[in-house]
Design a protein around this nucleic acid. Structure first.
Lengths: 331, 331
DNA sequence: CTGAAAGCGCTAACAC
DNA sequence: GTGTTAGCGCTTTCAG
């Protein structure tokens, strides 16, 4: 990794500046010069130094940072995919981090990343440490908050309302005749967005006069086994339920497995509903009642909003993406 | 984002160098100076510029690049998680990219990332473009190839043998009395590691005198629905199978769903086996026969091997991680 | 169309 | 314990 612009310039008999212009595909050089410079660069195995470029220029790199709650979440994997595709197409590189549902960890990550002078940041959720918000406002760098809708973003927001998701599901289950609902969650209270769905769910039920009967908030990660175990625990406390809403589809599918193992008929004896819209929900023998979230579209929209802002193009500060309740055969 | 070392130096009445030493937690300053500098830095809202630091120092940043086949793969999400946890603990930041199972896309990504002068790179798979290998060797930067075992890595390798995975599963199914096996894959031939499992599987069957009866290689992503559809397609061509090996667990579970929908009894009428060890495999009414891959451990080992190399600590060039065939109730 | 000069913010090396 | 000097590789600005 030795050759730099100077080396190429010498070998090609031009100045550094001309080499720089040629290699960045600018204008202001003859075809002859261009060909000569390119050939020399190639033969020297030149690799540009973006560290120097970003530093020397105006301090803004083509790095974009993105912080997600967990890297093992299937939904966030899809969001990341949407972001990555859009960003790499536009010439940016993606730095990622996980905050483990902690705003403190998020702040630590943001401090690290901001010192790389990224072009922008994508954060998950609307809840942050005050210090994080101060830092980002002061840095004046484009920030997109995704996943959870906020009407007063730090800068921009792409998301949907978790409260509404929960409320809609509550109303749907009530329409289906369910009257005694339970809830199985995970991550304790660390996941504010899961909490928001529970809040919406609870409020919708209460409003209709059929309040939530019982809930079980596990400490675990929201996986298949947690759902199975969570339903078992919930039912050991209260048998008298006619439907259970789960933190997400993985857990709901775990709940389904428990019901099947115990001979509990779904949906006859017990309704089951999930959230997220994982692919497996639609191929189950009985399709899972769930809320489909447009994950990849959110990622794409976030990346594009960020880049639009960087290019000075007009764009919306708040983008609401629609979720869709898909009635299945389980509730 | 205005304050720099100079500003702090002036306000604290010391030199830039002293500020630099204090802020990096070095030695060579009085307690008094330290406290004063820290206070000033804090009050000025100083954010260090890693671009300048990495550039000015020795050209090696604390950035680590990692390229995975797909960001939507659950298994790679777990690997990323392992890498991220280890790396962030050690003070590095993670740049990611997806190559969509294409070595050409991988090379384009590597060229972008190398120009950020990362401390090291983690690549997935052992197959790369010649240009990629040349570039990396020339750059002399630590590289860990993960997932697919190679005894002649570019630099280091952490993985296991996909051929062995397939062979083991073939032998296991033969021991269980299966004689007419089929295979359902995805991603056509783009996924060389899935191909390797098929190769191993096929060879084990042939060796025992019960060669593979039929296989169906879909173009799709290896998901639940692809598995369902793939089994349907395979069986429409050949009814006479007593077991089917799938590209991964998602697809196997999709196959299970198809069998259930069609009244095909598993494992009586048809055995089903997957690969990967996703959590859902173990909570199915009939636990899926599969191969468990230590995803997070691979990520952790890769990150640690990289950092050991950076610190000049001795380490192994090739780390073999064991996979484990878990006999379930489906095959 | 091309080049020279200046400087981005930081750190290594050395001097005091 | 602290300061000075030099320079990393590039781009911006301005001059020709």
């Amino acid at each position: 990794m030795k050759a730099n612009l100077e080396d190429i310039a010498k070998a090609a008999g031009v100045s550094k500046m001309t080499v720089s212009r040629v290699l960045r595909g600018g204008t202001g050089f003859s075809d002859d010069t261009r060909d000569r410079v390119r050939k020399v660069a190639e033969s020297l195995g030149y690799v540009p130094n973006k560290l120097a470029a970003a530093f020397g220029a105006d301090q803004a790199s083509t790095l974009v940072g993105m912080c997600v709650p967990r890297l093992t979440s299937g939904l966030f994997g899809q969001v990341l995919d949407g972001v990555d595709r859009a960003l790499s197409r536009l010439g940016y590189q993606l730095i990622i981090g996980a905050n483990n549902h902690s705003t403190e960890e998020e702040e630590a990550w943001v401090r690290q990343i901001v010192s790389w002078r990224p072009a922008g940041l994508i954060l998950s959720g609307r809840t942050h440490q005050p210090g994080t918000v101060d830092l980002l406002r002061q840095a004046g760098m484009p920030v997109v908050e995704i996943w959870d809708l906020t009407t007063s973003p730090i800068d921009m927001s792409v998301g949907f309302s978790h409260v509404d998701c929960g409320a809609e599901m509550g109303q749907h289950l009530l329409r289906r005749g369910r009257r005694r609902a339970g809830y199985v969650g995970a991550l304790a209270r660390a996941d504010v967005m899961g909490q928001a769905r529970l809040d919406g769910f609870r409020a919708a039920l209460a409003e209709a006069g059929h309040p939530l009967v019982a809930s079980e908030l596990l400490l675990d990660m929201p996986g298949f086994y947690a759902g199975l175990y969570g339903l078992e625990t919930l039912l050991s406390r209260t048998r008298d339920l006619d439907v259970v809403y789960f933190h997400n589809d993985e857990m709901a599918i775990g709940g389904l497995a428990y019901a099947q193992a115990r001979g509990i008929r779904v949906p006859e004896d017990l309704g089951i509903a999930g959230w997220g819209g994982m692919e497996a929900a639609s191929i189950l023998p009985r399709r899972l009642t769930t809320t489909v979230v447009p994950t990849t579209a959110i990622g794409k929209a976030a990346a594009e909003a960020l880049v639009a802002r960087l290019k000075g193009e007009p764009g919306q500060d708040v983008t609401v993406v629609p979720t869709r309740l898909v009635p299945g055969e389980t509730g």
